[in-house]
Design a protein around this nucleic acid. Structure first.
Lengths: 345, 345
DNA sequence: CTGAAAGCGCTTACAG
DNA sequence: CTGAAAGCGCTTACAG
């Protein structure tokens, strides 16, 4: 591959001249005839500047590192994909590349450390919270980024202790699906949670309990199921419950639409109708929620928007140095056909 | 951010010593006590090597540029996401980053050129064919990459004229949905194609015509609809057809499952039953195809596998220099409940 | 209108 | 066991 030096030699001029002309075609620093010769040489050698070298020199890489501590296929999670789309929507128009750092390691902490090693040299970092992270993991990961001194922003995490760039989801009371179900007359509500320690499940269980308490609904630990945020896990988790126990609930709230997919399948296999026998609520309002049969009622989170805001915030701190930007995005309930009021209220 | 020089100064040793120790902890080149001091300094400064500088020096970036000439959300297309997952499955374990180059420009050719500018410095490139590419665009884009001299591989394109790293999809006769439908007794088959000029639609129309010819089924141009590979476009395209004309067909073959989603909706709104009145076939076997109501019969392409093979091939040419690797991946028919044999055969 | 030189932060022979 | 130096391919003052 040709270098700037090759072009300069060919034209009989210095690297500086070529470099300056290439970055600004209208520069008055270079004469017209020289410009022509450079253009010619550029064509002849099919020359393109080496961005690595440029980055080292300018200390600007025009790239953002994406850190998703998740041991498996990214791009396979509807939720992550929507977040990524939001990020892309601001990064690409401003000419930034999105760099997905490889995930190696067993737990989220080591993944983040490894990614941080690979991430050195980018202009900024976007750190995801995932199902593999306990709240403590997240705090620790954020600290790690703080120590690195790089500009960064954090998505899909609860509010962190330290003041960092962060955009968080919040469910206002009006988007509390447990409250909504109780108001429809449901009392025995299954909660299809993720994993026993992930931050999001813990928070949701808390809200669940509080809501029951407020309404004088007895809380039953057995009603918490673990579906690992996957369709198949949720399915088998529910099937296990159904074979072990009676149909002693009237609704199920899933912490992701993907798990609702599995819940639908499990119920179908047991000839239990939605919403006739059981009401189902999902979470995220993924694109397929409205295609399900019946269309799924779900907690709509501003997923795309979270990605968008995060990217905006990050570019802002890259430009201004200002950090500690904090944005809250409220959820709402998307009512569709998978829930119904109980008649015998 | 601390540099190698800072560490070296602190320890009272040369950059070389620190560099060598950091890359190989077991080196005999550095004394035990020096090693300890370096470790200490590394902790103190929270030092991590700058990968940009390392890349420039080693001429190896451990990153692969992904070029998707597509003006819109990546990560929102089930098809692209599956391809990406396949790529990730080989790149991440081998410690390569995936770099998504920003797409700017109107047409696919300018997008690719711009991406090529940004892509300089990566170890290799993966070029996608998209709905925005005519076959001529693709040939031109591939030529552009050839001229760049960088290792690359091409996915989701028909076989190119030039011998390049490429993995292509192929529908063997057994996976020809038109043939299958004809054998079920269908004669008037709607083809929900993409855009008027995209390479894939053109190829599919060709196969469609040939298949009709073989079976002595008259071909009717009106049966070709354009759905732009999107749910909503396909939906409105079909609705338009239904209001303009009679229900003069018995089956529709969609060039993507996503468009089948729209076709389902359009038919539902017209109270046309699937497969009772109309049989529907999709393409790709996207994850949601089996959740549709009724579950969608579809042409299963080895999408994940294409990504995987492509990445393997690319790493291979990066290591060996060998290029022109060509892999064919055959489709098959995933039979589900959206198709039925016509009784009055 | 243009060139020589320093510098970005690493790695890698080379020399001792 | 360790250091000095060159080099990767750019950009950017500085000087003329």
């Amino acid at each position: 591959m040709a270098s700037l030096q090759d072009i300069a030699d060919y034209v009989g001029v210095s690297k500086a001249t070529v470099s300056i002309y290439l970055k600004d075609k209208n520069t008055s620093r270079v004469g017209v005839s020289t410009k022509k010769k450079i253009d010619e040489a550029r064509k002849k050698f099919n020359y393109r500047p080496n961005n690595i070298a440029r980055s080292l020199s300018t200390k600007k890489s025009m790239s953002i590192g994406i850190m998703v501590p998740f041991n498996g296929s990214l791009y396979q999670s509807t939720f992550i994909n929507e977040l990524l789309s939001g990020i892309q929507s601001v990064l690409f128009p401003r000419q930034y590349s999105m760099v997905f750092l490889p995930t190696t390691g067993e737990d989220s902490r080591s993944m983040v450390k490894n990614q941080l090693d690979k991430g050195q040299g980018h202009d900024g970092l976007i750190l995801f919270g995932t199902r593999y992270c306990t709240t403590e993991d997240m705090e620790s990961n954020v600290q790690e980024l703080e120590k690195s001194g790089m500009p960064f922003v954090v998505v899909n995490m609860p509010q962190m202790k330290s003041v960092v760039n962060q955009v968080v989801f919040r469910d206002p009371p009006s988007a509390n699906p447990v409250k909504y179900l109780i108001e429809l007359g449901h009392e025995r509500i299954l909660l299809m949670a993720g994993r026993e320690q992930d931050s999001e499940s813990l928070a949701s269980i808390l809200v669940y309990k509080e809501t029951c308490l407020e309404r004088d609904i007895p809380f039953d630990d057995d009603l918490i199921l673990w579906g690992d945020f996957e369709k198949d896990s949720a399915k088998s988790s529910l099937i296990q419950y159904l074979t072990r126990k009676k149909l002693d609930f009237t609704a199920v709230y899933c912490l992701s639409d993907t798990m609702a997919l599995g819940v639908y399948e499990a119920l179908k296999e047991h000839n239990i109708s939605v919403p006739g026998d059981i009401s189902v609520i999902g979470r995220n309002d993924s694109f397929f929620a409205s295609y399900m049969a019946p269309p799924l009622t779900t907690v709509k989170r501003q997923v795309f928007n979270e990605g968008k805001k995060a990217a905006e915030i990050l570019l802002n701190t890259i430009e201004t140095g200002r950090t500690g930007q904090f944005v809250i995005l409220d959820s709402s309930l998307s009512l569709r056909d998978s829930t119904r009021a109980l008649l015998n209220m």
